[in-house]
Nucleic acid binder design. Structure first.
Length: 223
DNA sequence: GCGACAG
DNA sequence: ATCTTGTCGC
């Protein structure tokens, strides 16, 4: 499936409502994924660089990397981040030699105003299992989780549990985990903990973030 | 109406 | 996201 680029906020919201029914929230999703992909996009004005880093799910070693350059086609609007990043991410994902078993997105999934954040969007368009890991609060309310790594609390929105606030490092600010597509919340958190042996953020997002910034600086590709 | 608001 | 030095702590 290819990404649509709306011209207005109304069109964008309509597309989200249209794709939302295609979400598969059945789960459970992979517990021991062989290949886990991290995706991220870096910007410099209108120029952008999308990156996909695939890690071995067991060793966390980088096994494949892809970067693509492009131009911003949709300005950032809270709740519509996917329209800014998905086109370039699909392009990059399409250049992988093999599909990953799980994709870890920078941002939110179900924990979204219309229950269709970046992770859901990318999941539906690729058909692959996805989860979202946000660094800061966006929507929902929550109690602070205990200081121990692994402790978590419910992220609630309009009376629904839409995600978890998970502590990945003792005494360090937690991350916001929500499901994207074809993965349940327990499995999503299980994977996030497996990807954070010593840092707050998943190795997948750390590597893809670094990769996208490098690509931007090196002008590896541009339109 | 006003402020908040993933990246 | 991006603009940006030094500094506290493991």
């Amino acid at each position: 499936m290819k990404a649509q680029t709306p011209r207005t906020i109304q069109e964008a919201e309509a597309i989200q409502d249209e794709l939302r029914p295609l979400l598969d929230l059945t789960g459970p999703g992979p517990r021991r994924p062989a290949r886990v992909a991290g995706v991220d996009v870096a910007y410099d004005g209108q120029r952008l660089a999308a990156a996909v880093a695939v890690l071995d799910g067991a060793t966390l070693e980088v096994v494949e990397q892809v970067t693509v350059g492009g131009r911003v086609a949709f300005d950032y609007v809270p709740g519509l981040l996917a329209f800014r990043e998905v086109p370039a991410l699909l392009e990059a994902l399409g250049r992988l030699t093999a599909a990953p078993d799980l994709i870890v997105c920078d941002g939110y999934g179900l924990a979204h105003p219309r229950r269709f954040g970046l992770a859901c969007h990318l999941g539906v368009l690729t058909g692959l299992p996805t989860i979202g890991v946000g660094k800061t609060a966006f929507v929902g309310s929550y109690p602070d989780p205990a200081p121990e790594r692994g402790s978590w609390t419910d992220l609630t929105l309009d009376g629904d549990v839409v995600g978890r606030v998970l502590r990945t490092r003792h005494g360090v600010k937690p991350v916001f985990v929500s499901v994207g597509h074809r993965v349940d919340l327990d499995t999503a958190c299980h994977n996030v903990l497996a990807l954070t042996p010593h840092y707050r953020l998943p190795e997948t997002t750390r590597v893809s973030d670094r990769l996208s910034r490098m690509a931007l600086i090196e002008n590896v590709t541009f339109d």
